[in-house]
Write a protein that binds this DNA or RNA. Structure first.
Lengths: 186, 186
DNA sequence: GCATCAAACTTTAGCGTTGAAGTCTTGACC
DNA sequence: GGTCAAGACTTCAACGCTAAAGTTTGATGC
């Protein structure tokens, strides 16, 4: 009655080749190589997210909170952003941001105050504690990432990065990006 | 007051290089190349999921339902699996599976019945309609995937696939996989 | 200067998920 | 052959998110 209960700990997937074979069996028109790349990509990402998640649990914050910390750190000092802007960058609704900020204020990771020059706006600012948390996550995450790519030669890393960026550009160019605004994208 | 309301339509992210530069500024020990690969990977995946999501909306099913359809199709005829096994493969709790199955039965995508040879067990089986839905998603998804990889040469596809699989193996070997069982993984 | 409209955030209702407790069946032990 | 433990699923309470309505502040027009 231990483990296997809570779940959320990495789905148990079939061997990759077996899964591709199943797709071919059920839908013969599929291109096995394409499917293999795409499936590996998705699976790798899921596994990485599970790994990040475990590290975050050790640090006592959730993935949602990590996203907010990252967004605030990336803008640089004084680490401030409004709830609306945060919501847009994280891809969720303003309502969700309100609640996230509630929790994070309660935990001392950020502060929330009205902008006195424009009282409609609210300013969310990273606390020192929040910044420390982010640094701690960064130490763990980058160690994990370094380890993950350890087997790759410098050339392979370069090639991988270059290919991924090309794919990214392709998918972004085909996505009008919902609101239509893709100003600061690239 | 149009757009930008509902959100969930791909977060608006900074230019990749700008984001890497921010990480270097805030945490100089980071390896920019590693970070670039990892960030591109995550971002690509998110964009792809948004794209899949849009296709699914067109077909009238949710991402959750798609996952269940895939799992059932992959096992092959007669397309049967128990709720517990489904939950394990999808990486969620049995409770969530119960509700998902409720919805999918109501929509006619699967059937649920007790196993008469062992009345503790329940059997979830894909209906013809469910299988048709899956085929439709597969047609759209594979077209999207073919298009995504279109710019890559055969050699690049091979290299990409090979590198991804090596990364996958590395991350899987470092994850005891929660329950400790990784039998049919590889 | 007052009224109206727009913008930014918050509140409310509903849905899907988790974690924990509950129900029902099967198998084993005495 | 009856009781008891284990397994498989379901039910319940709490939480986070979305969509939509509500509130407060700022800007515009007359």
């Amino acid at each position: 009655m231990t483990a296997a209960a809570g779940s959320t700990g990495a789905p148990e997937e079939l061997d990759l080749d077996a899964q591709i074979a199943a797709y071919q069996r059920e839908y013969p028109e599929v291109d096995p190589q394409v499917e293999k790349v795409v499936t590996a990509l998705g699976r790798l990402n899921r596994r990485m997210n599970v790994a990040y998640g475990r590290q975050l649990v050790d640090l006592g914050i959730s993935n949602s909170e990590w996203e907010v910390l990252k967004a605030l750190v990336v803008v640089g000092q004084p680490y401030r952003l409004g709830p609306g802007e945060l919501a847009k960058r994280l891809g969720l609704t303003p309502a969700a941001m309100t609640h996230r900020i509630d929790r994070m204020v309660a935990e001392g990771l950020v502060t929330r105050e009205r902008d006195e020059t424009n009282r409609v706006r609210v300013i969310v600012e990273l606390t020192d504690e929040g910044r420390e948390k982010w640094l701690a996550t960064m130490r763990l995450a980058s160690a994990f990432e370094d380890d993950l790519l350890q087997d790759l030669t410098p050339l392979e890393r370069t090639i991988l990065g270059e290919i991924l960026i090309r794919l990214l550009r392709r998918v972004e160019s085909s996505q009008p990006d919902a609101g239509g605004r893709l100003e600061d994208l690239d």
